[in-house]
Nucleic acid binder design. Sequence first.
DNA 1: GTAGCCATACCGAACAGTCGGTTTGTCTGT
DNA 2: ACAGACAAACCGACTGTTCGGTATGGCTAC
Lengths: 204, 204
Amino acid sequence: MAATAGVKDAVRTAAVDLFAKNGFANTSVQQIVDAAGVTKGAMYHYFCSKDELLFGIYEHLLTLQGEHLAAIVATGDTTEQKLRAACIDVIETSIEFLDEGTVFFRSAHMLPAEKQLEVKHRRREYNDQFVSLVEAGQREGVYRTDIPRAVLVANFFSDLHYLPQWYSADGPEDGSLIAAQLTDLFLAGIGIRNNSTVNTLTKE
Amino acid sequence: MAATAGVKDAVRTAAVDLFAKNGFANTSVQQIVDAAGVTKGAMYHYFCSKDELLFGIYEHLLTLQGEHLAAIVATGDTTEQKLRAACIDVIETSIEFLDEGTVFFRSAHMLPAEKQLEVKHRRREYNDQFVSLVEAGQREGVYRTDIPRAVLVANFFSDLHYLPQWYSADGPEDGSLIAAQLTDLFLAGIGIRNNSTVNTLTKE
DNA sequence: GTAGCCATACCGAACAGTCGGTTTGTCTGT
DNA sequence: ACAGACAAACCGACTGTTCGGTATGGCTAC
């Protein structure tokens, strides 16, 4: 089943799949290697622990989304364009890696304390960049200031957490459409006025 | 440490605490009974399994929030008043039982499949009642109809899921204030126009 | 009152199974 | 012959649960 060249990938794929379906603690190393079509010896030749398998999932997502956000911030767009692009991107990425997201939000506490700190730190970096965008928008007078920034931002990140719980790729809705809709709801909520733009957005 | 009369309560409290802090799978029965100041024998005299301990947490929250929502729906208020009250209540309840919420959203997949189904079913009941309120508001022309109801509602429930991850009781913000703010953000997002009312709301 | 009876509450050692990880050995290409 | 890539057997630690047994306290018969 696994590609001839690619024990690592086969193990990773199987691990994400099983972790998402049954949870990290309920998935044994034996189940993973069976699903990947390899043996424990092969797996431990490439990965030094089960924890590392889990941490790899976090690494991958955090790096990917961090790079995306940095690229968006570095453009010459307006603050509003940047924030919208950032929202759309992170939702679309979360949909693309839905299984990873499931594991991410459910099993972070299973990581060894040291790795948990690293994840926390890197998430904070993402969060801070995001907050900066909102702050800039507030200074420009386009976002409301009557609610703490932390609450405004939490209101958006919550969508990412919940996504793996309700979104189904088999559903009638396309990922990009959902991304546009959730982004619109968020921006409508934090805007000075509620200018609905979702109808034009979904066409571009 | 445990009240002289109350092995059950002592165990329950300790279990919620440890499950929230270390996760269900990482908490051994021995740890629970040690923290509760009782023995395993005593615990298994009252609870037939570790799973039942977990399920009890779900039962409690689901029953409580279900009753609250039913009471709100049964009032003679307008749809808008009902929806606002429902939002405020469920956020406040989630803050009051923050540890339970942590366990709820993180460890549901650890339940035996049969119990998982029951939880799913009862959550669907809550969800359906909530959707009905939004639907009524749409018919009355006060909520937008350009985004699927499922997305509108998911956008709110997501806040509940995320709450245990960022809200801290030690923080500067009061629970009721956060509830009003998050509710306002949600209602502003789904409203035909974005009428900010949070300033008056937090005074009432 | 008090002796006998019994249900309930509780104890804690032991069991049986599972798991992550390691050791040892084999095969293959160079 | 030697090193990297694996396979298979194995180990020690830990877990949820069980179960034989003890302590307590109320009820009944006399």
